[in-house]
Structure formats: C-alpha cells, structure tokens
Design a protein around this nucleic acid. Structure first.
Ligand code: MN
Ligand code: MN
Ligand code: ZN
Ligand code: ZN
Lengths: 139, 139
DNA sequence: TACTAAATTAGAATAATTCTAAAAAACGTT
DNA sequence: AACGTTTTTTAGAATTATTCTAATTTAGTA
C-alpha cells in the first residue's frame, strides 16, 4: 500500500498496522484474518475499525473486495487486473497473473457498460487433495 | 429442471413449486426471491424449505450457487458452463454464453486440480445508466 | 497547548443463512 | 385404505458476517 500520506486521511496507528499487514499481502485475507492479526499489536482493536479502514481503502481504489469465497468477503491490496484460483476445500486463493483478453458479445456490450471482468478458477489444492474428502459446488 | 422423479427424493408440492419456479429461469434469483414467489402458492412455506431444497439440488448437480453478488447467494438452474455479467447498481445478472477457452499457466496446474472457471463481467446496465448515481467497487 | 474534525471503540443491530426439534406428509407395504 | 417408516416441512431460535451507534479518544493543525 504505497504512500499512506494522502489527502484527508488521518494516519492512526491502527490504520498503519492494517496497511502494513496488507502491503504486499497475497493471501487474500478476510476481515477476520486482518482483525486477528492486527489485534496482536493493538489489543483494543475493534472489528469496526477493520471494516471502516477497508471501506476507506476500497473507496480510494486501493483495495479490492473479492466475492469469490461464498462465506465471507476477501480483500486484495493488489488492484492491478488479475484473476484468482480458489481451493474449494480450504478456501485458499492464489493469484493468476495472465492477461486473458476476453470480449463480450456485441449484444451484451449494447445493453451494458462493462468496466471489467474477473475470472475465478476453482479446484482443489495439492495440499487438500492428499487429505481426501468431498468438495463444495459453488461457482 | 428435467425429470423430478429421481433417486430417493420425495416429491412434495413445495419442492415442485420451487422446481417449477426455477425451471428455465434465467434471472439468477436469490433465496429470498424464490421464497417470496413460492410463498404466494404456499403461504406456509418457510425459508428453511427453500434453503433445504436448494441444497439438495446443488448436491445433485442440478443447481449452481453464484457468489457474484456480494450481498447474497444467487442461484442458477442452468448448470451448463457459461459466464455472467452483473450490473453493479441493480445487481441484475445476465448470462454470457460464450466459450472462452482459458487455460491456467503450468505453474498453477501443477499445484491445483482445476475443475472449471467462471468469468464475471461487471458494469452498469442501460436501465441504471439513465438514472445516474455511483457504483460499487467489488470484483 | 488547545480545537475540532475524524477515527476508534464496545456493543447493539441487522441480514443472510443454518440449525432444531416437533408436526406433517410421502411412499412403500400390508 | 390404513400403517409404519423415513423424509420433509415448519416456526422460530441460533449463528455468522457485516453494519450501525453514540460516546470517547486522537491526529493534525493553529
Ligand atoms: Mn489477488
Ligand atoms: Mn446463468
Ligand atoms: Zn486446499
Ligand atoms: Zn442495473
């Protein structure tokens, strides 16, 4: 999360901690992941602060909210266009940095103004495959 | 939703109503959409029945759970591979029936067994564009 | 150091979804 | 047609993620 000192944002230690945790983080953490981690340094940290900060970052375009995990939102500080691969078992999400160029058919382009797209690949990671079991079914 | 009379499933009027509502439905309804509609015919219908039935259908592979809408799960009785375009304003979801052939890089294919993929396009529908306003930021 | 707008906090509120356990109904068998 | 077993439905409670509230604290500035 590049330069923190920007327009109209107060630099609080809590924010700093969240920003530092997110900086370069490719684990696509949930709000709770972030809360748990940052709470170690700031035991009074509240969930509201985590959500508030994430919302501020999102509004400023410094953070993406991923909806790929059906159970909770996941956050991604990498806002450059890329895609994701999720393990249906353990919900691990990894980046897919490939520029697939996908265009919408004329029909849809007429009835929508399209801003972008996002590909979610789903499968089972090697780690989970060993352990065996059943998978989910969401898309 | 093809033949209902299949292995080990009791055919109740409630299920039939849900199945009929879903059959050929391309609106990608939420559980509440389904509940609201089916309740018209079965005023005692409960949410649990809707969720139970959706879960049964999903397990049998007759229904997809879409996670594209950050606020709630959306359901799709069309289980053949296709993609989606969502309006960030009104959350309308439309089908994109194009067979983009997207392959994962070797690296990811080694560490994951990939079952499939799903592309979400996001934008603003014409209907919403007229009305103006701000959009979301989820991916 | 003092002011003030903005941020943090604990906890309550909300909303989607899941769970519970009792009553009802489907369906195969008499 | 009635019976018995198993599955399903149901209302409501419980759970979980997220948002809201209103009081307190703090960052940034004068
Ligand atoms: Mn990513
Ligand atoms: Mn669809
Ligand atoms: Zn896994
Ligand atoms: Zn719209």
């Amino acid at each position: 999360m590049q330069k923190y000192r920007e327009i109209g944002l107060k630099l609080t230690p809590q924010r700093l901690a969240i920003l530092e945790y997110l900086d370069g983080n490719t684990s696509h953490p949930s709000a709770e992941d972030i809360y748990r981690e940052v709470k170690k340094r700031f035991p009074t940290m509240s969930f509201a602060t985590v959500y508030n900060t994430l919302e501020v970052l999102r509004k400023r375009g410094n953070l993406l909210e991923l909806t790929i995990d059906p159970e909770r939102k996941r956050y991604d500080p990498n806002t450059s266009p890329h895609h994701h691969l999720i393990c249906l078992r353990c919900k691990k999400i990894v980046d897919v940095h490939v520029d697939y160029r996908i265009d919408l058919p004329q029909k849809e382009r007429e009835s929508f103004e399209v801003f972008g797209n996002h590909i979610e690949f789903y499968g089972i990671c090697n780690n989970c495959k060993q352990k065996g079991g059943v998978m989910n079914g969401s898309v």
